[in-house]
Write a protein that binds this DNA or RNA. Structure first.
Length: 539
DNA sequence: CTAGGGTTAG
């Protein structure tokens, strides 16, 4: 499982590189190249760069180090580094490499630009991408089909659809690739009618164009239209199935999603990672631990070897939301390459299942790694402080987040702080805290304060909070969910029910169709009724 | 070694 998919023609490669399947082997080969004086042999250097950047997982840093020591890398090496960086989690490096090329007056070729543009698109860097477009023209690659298609894709996704359209009208209308890319861009923006028109006009439709359209409908919740195309499409692949399954999960038709999955298996279409992610998300939302365990088993059978980070993260989330924190911890420990989401998932899982000490412990463990926390991390940390009544500690983490981690607090963090103070009965302090906020407090913040006033019987402040609340629109689903956590975690089911109503009334689509008790039930039952097989101390 | 479709955390 360590090797990534390879695009290179493997048969023609020297056998030592074909046998290079992990980092250890790579370093051995590298060492022997140096010992034998082959380390300036470009044939080997190209392989070294390609293998560490593109083929092995988690060795891109090594590729960068090696690359930095090559006095005059050839264009293939530059392209490989840019390509690998563009598809890595840090596409900025691809731009930096291109800038370096530019500074050193190294001529890019027709392979260079698609990779650089891919990085711009991924980063949503409209200005940079437009500048790159200028370089494309300067070097005369404008009519190269691949370059032009990536340009269309960039402009379509980073704002200027007019330019994308112009490029498309000019030269690309005979090519199905930019046609469906443009269709996808319109569908993504929610312009389904324009997308559909493009789709209908296509002289030839390949599977991608069908998938683009089905995905577009599914994401907008127009499952009837999606279904119609799904039934019409001449041939389906795993993406077609995934689009439908994800669509059903998105609009909370979990049974339909599971049914489709069954059908998929019956006809012998092999589900992949994306299928599993959707299904895990369905289990998490349903709180269906049994089904979640089934999916977990299926995943284990499917991929022998390491659990991928992304699947591991989804499993942690599923187990946490289904109240099985031990299983979540088990999965967490099994993930080899933990990323910030892995830590966030387990920290949030512990926090919302009521394990405050475990949460803070986990955060301290995280600090000992090289993974930097982000704003989501602190939602978990602060929620834990709030749950456990750790006011001083909550303040400390709030400051730590700003001063040491350079993360500006957003509404969710403020919400946690107000909840923490409110629970502790420090109502006046909570009120002052709201006034000290750098952003305009939203409904959740006021409602949190209101709830606390009710609990502690402060009528005056409650009135004030209520007034503020009345003047605010209620439309952001994420914040309502946080609030419902706040309510539910206190055991105030009445409050939770109110929030749910508020969500329905304000047209919040998420969580429609079933009650909060079902959604958070298992996890919260566990917490509220204190069946504690997992002990806080031993994370 | 080029381009397009599906994805996890609150």
């Amino acid at each position: 499982m360590i090797r990534k998919r390879s695009g290179i023609n493997r048969q023609r490669r020297p056998s030592i590189w074909q046998k290079c399947t992990d980092f250890r082997a790579l370093r051995q080969i590298h060492a022997s190249l140096i010992v034998n004086g082959f380390n300036s042999n470009f044939r080997h250097l190209r392989e070294l760069i390609f293998t560490s950047a593109m083929e092995l997982m988690g060795t891109i840093e090594y590729a960068h180090q090696v690359f930095a020591h090559i006095a005059e890398p050839d264009i293939f090496m530059w392209n490989t580094m840019i390509r690998a960086s563009a598809q890595s989690s840090n596409p900025v490096k691809a731009i930096a490499l291109y800038a370096q090329m530019d500074n050193r007056s190294i001529k890019p070729d027709n392979f260079t630009f698609p990779f650089v543009l891919k990085a711009c698109t991924k980063l949503f860097w409209a200005k940079t991408g437009t500048a790159v477009h200028g370089r494309v023209v300067k070097f005369g690659f404008q009519s190269n089909p691949s370059v032009r298609n990536t340009l269309i894709f960039f402009h379509a996704n980073c704002g200027d659809l007019k330019i994308a359209n112009a490029l498309f009208e000019d030269h690309a209308k005979t090519d199905v690739v930019p046609w469906s890319a443009l269709t996808a861009a319109y569908a993504k923006r929610g312009d389904l009618n324009v997308a559909r028109q493009l789709f209908d006009e296509m002289p030839v439709r390949d599977l991608v164009s069908w998938n683009v359209m089905i995905t577009g409908y599914a994401k907008q919740g127009e499952m009837e239209s999606a279904r119609k195309l799904f039934d019409e499409v001449p041939k389906r692949d795993v993406v077609t199935w995934n689009a439908m399954i994800a669509g059903y999960v998105l609009c909370s038709s979990h049974e339909q999603a599971l049914e489709l999955f069954e059908e998929m298996r019956k006809i012998g279409e092999r589900p992949d990672e994306v299928t599993m992610l959707s299904l895990l998300s369905a289990c998490a939302e349903l709180g269906d631990l049994e089904m979640g365990k089934n999916i977990h088993r299926y995943i284990s059978e499917m991929c022998s070897g390491d659990l991928s980070t992304i699947l591991g993260n989804a499993l942690i989330d599923m187990y946490s939301k289904c109240g099985s924190i031990e299983k979540a911890l088990e999965v967490f420990r099994a993930i080899r390459d933990k990323d910030v989401t892995s830590w966030n998932s387990i920290i949030g899982g512990l926090a919302f299942n009521g394990y405050a000490e475990g949460t803070l412990d986990m955060y301290r463990k995280m600090q000992r790694t090289t993974i930097r926390p982000n704003e989501i991390t602190f939602v978990g940390v602060l929620a834990a402080c709030s749950h456990a009544g750790k006011v001083d500690e909550g303040y400390r983490y709030f400051d730590h987040m700003r001063s040491e981690c350079k993360i500006e607090p957003d509404m969710k963090h403020y919400g946690c702080m107000v909840d923490m103070l409110g629970r502790a009965g420090l109502l006046k302090e909570a009120f002052d805290f709201i006034h000290s906020m750098k952003i305009e407090p939203n409904a959740v913040v006021w409602r949190t304060l209101l709830g606390a006033c009710r609990v502690h019987g402060n009528v005056e402040l409650a009135k004030l909070a209520n007034e503020k609340l009345l003047g605010i629109r209620k439309d952001e689903s994420g914040d309502y969910i946080l609030l419902s956590n706040v309510y539910a975690s206190r055991g105030e089911w009445v409050g939770a029910e109110k929030v749910r109503k508020l969500m329905v009334e304000s047209g919040v689509k998420k969580n429609r169709g079933y009650s909060l008790v079902e959604a958070y039930g298992n996890a919260l039952m566990h917490y509220l009724f204190d069946s504690k097989p997992y002990r806080d101390q031993e994370t």
